[in-house]
Amino acid sequence: MAAGHSKRSVARQLDMTLNTVMRFSRATTPEEMFTGQWQSRATPLDAYKPYLDQRWQEGCTNAWKLWEEIIEEGYSRGYNSVRSYVSQVLRGKLQSVGPRPPSAHAVTRWILTHPDGLAESDRPPQGRAGELP
């Protein structure tokens, strides 16, 4: 197009349909490139999203558990849509919270392992034994 290639040639090279290349070439903003019938389409999960959001805020972060709960409320679809919603939408909200606290297993290992046997990142800061930084 700008480099002298035809739209049909670009479609072949990118393994896209000619209509897709035409739509992309007409777009004036990135958002216009990603419009289509699949965008903002209602899904069976939409009715349950407020409940999922609420349960997430209450601390239930297990997608399988959330799926089981909405099945009891009448949701009749599969697990994958709930897993996708949790990973793409809800976990995205969680990212701003901060780092995940260490597991009980990790803390137990830190306590029971001699400092020389720990990875450098898990060792206590240098100083007197028992002294906190």
Rank of each mutant, 00 (worst) to 15 (best):
E120C: 03
D122Q: 11
R55I: 04
L118E: 02
L14F: 10
Y51W: 14
Q57F: 03
T108W: 03
R77L: 06
T35Y: 10
L118Y: 05
T29L: 02
S84L: 06
R41V: 12
R55S: 02
S84W: 07
E120Q: 13
A11L: 01
L118D: 10
A42Q: 12
P99R: 14
W56G: 01
R83M: 01
R100G: 01
V82W: 02
P30Q: 07
R109H: 11
L94G: 12
V107K: 11
D116A: 03
P99C: 01
V89G: 02
V97A: 12
P125E: 13
P102Y: 11
L132A: 12
A47M: 08
Q39D: 12
S87P: 03
Q57C: 00
D15H: 12
L94F: 02
G117V: 13
T29M: 01
K7P: 12
W56C: 01
N62L: 12
G59I: 06
I111C: 12
S103W: 13
W110D: 05
W64Y: 15
L45R: 03
T28D: 01
P133R: 09
P102A: 02
R77K: 13
A63L: 03
T20C: 10
S121N: 08
K93A: 10
R8D: 04
L132R: 14
R41F: 02
Q126D: 15
M33Q: 14
R41T: 12
W56I: 01
W38N: 11
R12W: 05
E131Q: 13
I70R: 07
L14P: 06
A119H: 10
H114P: 06
I111Q: 12
A106F: 00
T20A: 14
S25Y: 08
E120M: 10
P133C: 11
R12Q: 14
R109K: 13
Q126E: 15
G4Q: 07
V89A: 08
E131T: 13
R123E: 08
D46Q: 03
C60G: 00
S84V: 00
V82Y: 07
L45K: 02
C60K: 13
L66P: 06
R12P: 06
P44K: 15
K93G: 11
E69W: 00
S40W: 13
H105E: 15
Q39F: 10
P101H: 05
M1K: 05
V10K: 03
V89L: 01
Y75G: 02
T28S: 03
R77S: 12
R128K: 14
E31H: 09
G98H: 06
N80S: 06
A27D: 08
T28R: 07
L132T: 15
T43R: 03
G4R: 05
S84K: 08
R123K: 08
L118P: 10
Q95Y: 03
K65M: 14
A11F: 00
R109T: 15
P101A: 11
S25C: 08
R100N: 04
G78L: 04
L94S: 13
T28Q: 04
G36Q: 08
D122K: 01
E120F: 11
A42M: 07
M33G: 05
H114E: 09
T35G: 08
G117H: 13
T20F: 09
S9H: 05
M22F: 05
E120Y: 09
Q126V: 10
W38Y: 10
E31D: 15
Y48L: 00
Y75V: 00
R26V: 00
S6G: 09
W67Y: 13
P44F: 04
T113K: 03
S40V: 10
A129L: 09
T28N: 03
R77Y: 15
P102N: 05
